[in-house]
């Protein structure tokens, strides 16, 4: 059963997934389209398309091909403005019931990507985890307040760019990092950021999304007792975040995401971590799956 109110941007068409990259390398368009179909049928709200460093023409072609077999909107996933421009240009809203594509993603160091809105309106994913210094170079935000301030900067600028602006035309990415190496307490920063966004009346209705699979990379598949590790921890995060207005993920349609009961060991693990620091966070993760 999918979680009510959670939209999944299907993650499978991504060059950084080895099996998908193989499909790109061998120009196996059939294989790519199979993956699209599978994600569509299993309930993806949207299909992410990341072609890595392949050419803008390659992106345009893939977008056109995918739109032949699905009416789901696409998420054009690249930090490269030329690849983004090609994907957006090739995208046809009329083949997606008039819906806009998503652009994944814009950061403060590449605000010029907003210019593409003029040629093809899109819903941007705005990366809040980094800002820029006085030289325009990207710097990572360190606290929830800094991350929230970056989100606010975006929200203040967006109405000048987006026609008929409303908060739901924006997706904020508050940034998730692998919990298995989170000795700097990023998980706590993430939850506090979501809370700050949720409590800001000026941000009511804004979408929030993270690349959820990233949360549990580098962890074992199964706990010592044979129960799954990754879907449990990812579900625990959703259980904590969704009451705070969190509503989207880039994730796997095959994963069994659930709202967990209060006494679930994965939920207890993440709740404990909010009160831990440094390497105690790491050992808490180990004791969860050991």
């Amino acid at each position: 059963m999918p979680i009510e109110g959670l939209k999944i941007i299907g993650e499978s068409i991504n060059d950084s997934i080895p099996s998908t990259r193989q499909l790109f390398e061998t120009n196996d368009i059939e294989g790519i389209l199979e993956l699209v179909k599978m994600q569509d049928e299993r309930g993806a709200a949207c299909i992410d398309v990341n072609v890595g460093t392949r050419s803008p023409g390659f992106m345009a072609d893939i977008v056109s091909q995918i739109q032949q077999i699905t009416t789901k909107p696409l998420s054009i996933d690249t930090p490269d403005i030329e690849i983004a421009a090609a994907g957006l240009e090739a995208y046809r809203p009329d083949l997606a019931n008039g819906r806009k594509p998503i652009l994944n993603s814009i950061s403060q160091s590449r605000l010029e990507m907003f210019e593409l809105y003029k040629t093809r309106p899109f819903i941007p994913i705005l990366l809040t985890t980094e800002d820029v210094n006085e030289n325009g170079e990207p710097v990572m935000n360190k606290t929830a307040m800094e991350t929230y301030q970056t989100a606010k900067k975006f929200m203040n600028a967006a109405p000048d760019i987006i026609d008929d602006f409303s908060n739901d035309q924006i997706i904020l990415d508050p940034g998730i990092v692998p919990i298995g190496s989170d000795s700097e307490g990023n998980f706590k920063r993430l939850m506090e950021t979501i809370q700050l966004i949720h409590e800001d009346p000026g941000m009511t209705g804004v979408n929030m999304s993270v690349g959820l699979s990233n949360f549990t990379v580098m962890l074992p598949q199964k706990c010592a007792d044979g129960t799954p590790v990754r879907s449990a921890l990812e579900s625990a995060f959703l259980t904590m975040a969704m009451p705070l207005g969190f509503n989207m993920i880039i994730g796997s349609v095959k994963r069994n995401y659930q709202i967990l009961p209060e006494n679930h060991s994965a939920l207890q693990c993440l709740t404990d971590i909010l009160n831990l620091e440094g390497f105690d966070i790491i050992t808490r993760v180990i004791t969860f799956y050991s």
Binding site: M218, P220, I282, T283, I286
Partner: peptide, 14 residues
């Protein structure tokens, strides 16, 4: 050999 994972490696380094 995938017998331990990143968290255990981090603790060893610590």
């Amino acid at each position: 050999e995938n017998k331990v994972f990143v968290p255990e490696l981090l603790m060893a380094a610590k």
